[in-house]
Amino acid sequence: MKLTLGLAAALVAGVLMAPATGWAQQKVKMGVSIPAATHGWAGGLNWHAQQAKAKLEKQYPTLEVVLVTARDVGRQANDLEDLVSVRNIDALVILPFESAPMTDPVRAVKQAGKFVTVVDRGLTDPSIQDLYVAGNNPEMGKVSAQYIKQKLGGKGDIVVLRGIPTVIDNQRVDAFQEEIKGSQIKVLGMQYANWNRDDGYKVMQDFLSRFPKIDAVWAQDDDIALGVIEAVKQAGREKEMFILGGAGMKDMIKRVMDKDPLVPADVLYPPGMIAEAMEITAKHLVEKAPIKKEYIIEATLVTPENASKYYYPDSPF
């Protein structure tokens, strides 16, 4: 019964919405291409994408979401070819591995007449995309710098743990350094910790050996921050400094909520943005709802006052 109802709905909707696509195509297909869950944030990304797929397919019976994950740029480019030629998608939602190398493959999808939504990492040619949904990396660096500046009263010694050498990391760090310019905050050391707990732990251990006084740590990412916390605890120097991570991992939001003095705040860079991009695209595809061309998700500062709003206990991230 349920099946026939769904089928009927699909047929009706198909007739109503797309006479151009004809009878052969009863469903609207949305391809979603994202990086595989190779680190915590990407894990969150995958979880939110799967949740959104389930929710949207239930909400719009005519919609089929094809979710593919890739481990590197080359595989993602292959995925796009398959989505267009084999899966025959009508729209693409993509979170590119890297901006420059993915620009031409996405252009090819656009030229095949598909609707293109780009998430998080902008292409080098923005005219390709129909819709852009993104977090704001420079803003994230800036908000982090402002918080550290304010919390330290404009004066102090800090260390910075960077992510993986990429455009994202550079944008964050450049904006951060721009913002602390002119203050008396001194960056003692900066090292890559690859958005990884183990590396965060190791790099922080060495920073602790190297510098007898550290007032604050900008870890930039919550996975790194968790490693940093362990290193600081092991050295017994919790009282000396505070740690600012970023992303919005549930463990870190929980610490902020519980007023952990070591983790007084967090800066959001939510992996849930993929779900938002999928929802907007699906709405446009199925209901032909008008859309803005750009949605920028702000880098919100999470403090004990607003933390409960950003706490997702069920997410793996």
Partner: peptide, 9 residues
């Protein structure tokens, strides 16, 4: 391990 962790930790 990725499957076991649901892509997370």
């Amino acid at each position: 391990v990725t499957y076991l962790a649901d892509g997370g930790t």
